[in-house]
Design a protein around this nucleic acid. Sequence first.
RNA 1: GGGCCCGUGGUCUAGCCGGUUAUGACAUCGCCUUUACACGGCGGGGGUCAUGAGUUCGAAUCUCAUCGGGCCCA
Length: 863
Amino acid sequence: MTIPKEYDPHIIEPKWRDSWDMSMYHFNWKDNSRPQFIIDTPPPYPTGNFHIGNSLNWCYIDFVARYKRMCGFNVMFPQGWDCHGLPTEVKVEEIHGITKNEVPREEFRNMCRELTVGNIEKMRQTMLNLGFSTDWSNEFVTMEPEYYSKTQRSFRQMYDMGRLYQSEHPVNWCPRCETAIAFAEVEYDARETKLNFLHFDGLEIATTRPELLAACVAVVINPEDDRYKQHIGSTVKVPLFGHEVKVIGDEAVDPSFGTGVVMICTFGDKQDVRWWLEHGLPLRKAIDKQGLMTEIAGKYKGMTIPECKQAIIEDLKNEGYLYEQKSLDQNVGMCWRCSTPIEILSERQWFIKIPNDEIAKAANEIEWLPEYMKVRLDNWNNTMEWDWCISRQRLFATPIPVWYCKECGEAMVAKEEWMPIDPTTQQPPEACKCGCTEFEAEEDVLDTWMDSSITALHVSGWLTDHEMRLPTQLRPQGHDIIRTWAFYTILRSMAIQGKRPWDSILINGMVLGEDGHKMSKSLGNVISPEEVIKDYSADSFRQWAAIGGSPGSDVMFRWKDVVSASRFFAKMWSIYRFSMSHLEEYEHSEIDASELKVVDKWLLSNLNRLIASVTDSMEKYQFDEAFKAVRGFTWDVLADNYIELVKARLYGEDEAGKKASRYTLYVAIDALSRMLAPFAPFFAEEMFSRIGDGSVHVQAWPEVCDSLIDEDVEKSGEFIKEIASNVRRYKSEHGMALNAPLEKIEIYGSLDDLTDVLGATNSPVEMIDGEPDFEHVPVNVKPNMGMIGPKFRGQAKAIINALTEANPKKIADELATGKVVVEVDGQTIELEPECVEIEKEVVSAGRAVDVLDISGVPVVIIR
RNA sequence: GGGCCCGUGGUCUAGCCGGUUAUGACAUCGCCUUUACACGGCGGGGGUCAUGAGUUCGAAUCUCAUCGGGCCCA
């Protein structure tokens, strides 16, 4: 068996990637004998670039999927693509040098489709390169008819339930994109603006939005405000425009802000909407969908909002209405996509009702990891004031399956059996209730979250022949989309199936660049996973993902983590190559514990503890903890100690000893390849390929064998290890070669088996009963805080002082008689022997020797 | 303005339902070719655990305040 000296991931990784039969990762819909573990994978937006943030999240998912599969679960790790959206429309316009209105609707959609197909392919490739165990038999693409017909059917079902309705209602509107947007799509930015103070027909008001004077429908003051309360019920004339508006009272007005008088416009901000609804005020639309002033703005008609603002301020000044301006810091709501300040317009739109209690209840049934992330959802849920606006004025999206009768205007919502359907190209197969067969299509489309909020339903087999498997077991996602994707998915799952979408939600952090800032193109700190694979390897990238931070916290990308990951693989490879060279003629079979030496049992005891702790960490999704444990064991226990200790046996003539060490090595390599499999699928596969049959990825996760965990064995093993490493250090300090023989080593203790000590020190070793020919001089008294503290409470400090100040020799003598006595504040206190420990120094008595103290046992070295 | 998270050697981090000398990695310094590995081994230096107060016999750990950083929301 020839094993190359160096591990070359650029050969090994493509080899396995191209030869793996991916059907081993397929979910079995018919199998009910194994527990299911369905993952509601986030469908990424197909930008064509599977970035490092996606990759971190997918690494977490893959660790879980592979681990659960090895533990015997029927795992589904599906892959979806959330295709619809504005960024693709913008990109297509850019690529083809057109605007979307210049080509027919269908042609434009096809261009978007084509671009998306290509982008998906690029991202798939990166995912394969990273070694994810994706179940490609359960891939879904939201722009495909099979998927979006489900989006449309969910629309119909929720319409029938009365959870979905159409209405004229204020919506957030982006005048640049010319579309309604949801609150989740509004971002806030601090800006400085001017607060304008106006004479307002006998009152003084302060406003940041004088351009909306034409839309003013009332003036409001606090009813407790003695300065103004007599005005309530009267009317005032709006400056410049002259229409009369009511003066009303409302406690929400802060008398200390501005003048204490506020004008209500339809609509300047969210508060205007609240007042408008509460007081039943009229509607005056001064801004149109393009963000231009309307008819009612009179001479300002057709101006943009900033133009109008400037013109009105000029006129107010000239007419003497404006008497003061003050700077004001204000947070402006903007479109998340284009940063244009949003307006609130009243438009006919489709809405989904938000059942806050139902969502809160479902959120409580879900296990949140980390737990505090649930607070973010609760906070969001508790502050929702309007329903979810689901219609968008865009093209590349799922069509709203609705027509309006040309005769009676009645909306006809398509039946489920007609779907998928595009009302703009297809007519309903039935006449309207009024008998008319002429219809006008709904041209609006659905918010993309309408597609992606049914992923949990989709992957559970909703609307298929398969058995419905909701709830899924795990939703892995970033904390940035809790208020969108998590929120909407819970809402839809509860509405349509009356069940929570998942048992658990695992929140991952964001990836930060090496400078500690969030990765962004403008900061120039972007690293692509492909770059890391090319320079190091996919397994090294995955190892960074595992140990870079714990799930939930933001993780910094650091090249040195990748470097140290690749060093670990070099080390592991070296261990593996060494082990395999000794396992060439080895046939594995179970052997009796009595055939094993202390050092073998010590290794196996440690190995089983490792399995227990790694399993525990994996169950808690603590990947960093799990991998660090594997790494620590491999490097410190196996390589630096076990292998050094058993070399003599492996190279020696004693067949029994050789067999025991080979057995132990084999067991360790086997268990390590399995525990590495979720993290480093390529490396683990290469390891396993020479010791087992089939892929490591269809093997069982190692089980803990409790009978092998033995504290006495660990103590003896540790003792041998300590002797070997102390002797090694001794030689190093004395400038001796590490394999140079010493004249003799005397151990004044008890050990059953000296084989490995002999081997590791390459020197004659003698075990001697009784005390050595040296003097033990007590040099220090160490009080045991853990014993003294709880027992003596307030006196503990004084006792500790008395002990440390006492003559160590005296205390040691007392200890020999069984009790230690100290004087504290004139009081005599008797301490149990456990309360005190004596540090001793072994003093040489004339011989030319060196003495090592190894866990209290004197070891004498004769050079 | 409200809420959440976080401050531990030069850098990043573990510990955080209190208990002797604070974990590990990277970096740094010194020594070593040793029948797996120099991408290695052995050893060293480096920390008032953000600051201040409190609880306690005892605080990195619990409480409060202050300062600093980040995130979410209004």
